[in-house]
Amino acid sequence: MLSQKTRYAIRAMQHLADRHGQGPVPLSEIAETQNIPAKFLTVILSELGRQGLVASQRGRDGGYWLALAPAAITYGDLIRIMRGSLALVPCASRYAHEKCTNCLEEGKCRTRALMLEVRDRTAELLDSIRLSDRIDSVPPFAASDSDK
Rank of each mutant, 00 (worst) to 15 (best):
E47C: 14
A38S: 15
D136F: 11
V89H: 05
E98T: 13
S146K: 09
G84A: 04
R58Y: 09
G107D: 09
G49H: 10
A96M: 10
A55N: 11
I30D: 00
M115Y: 12
G62H: 01
D133I: 04
P70N: 00
T122C: 09
R119T: 12
Y64P: 04
R134I: 13
A92M: 04
G63N: 00
R60P: 06
L126C: 08
P140N: 01
H97Q: 14
A55P: 01
S144C: 09
R121H: 12
A31M: 06
L114M: 15
I44F: 01
A71R: 14
L86C: 06
G76A: 04
G107N: 11
Y95P: 03
D127S: 04
A143R: 10
A113S: 15
S93I: 06
L114D: 10
S128K: 08
R60T: 11
A113L: 15
A31T: 05
S146M: 08
R94K: 13
R58G: 09
L131F: 05
K108E: 11
V118P: 07
C109L: 04
S85H: 03
G59E: 05
A142G: 08
K108S: 13
P90R: 05
A142D: 10
E47F: 14
I30H: 06
C103F: 07
H97F: 13
M115R: 11
L104I: 08
V138P: 01
L88Y: 10
S93V: 07
A38M: 14
E117W: 11
I44G: 02
S144P: 05
A38K: 15
I73R: 05
P37F: 07
A67K: 02
E32T: 11
G52H: 15
M82P: 02
H97M: 12
D136S: 13
T101H: 13
T33L: 01
A72G: 07
V89C: 02
I36P: 04
R80A: 04
A31V: 03
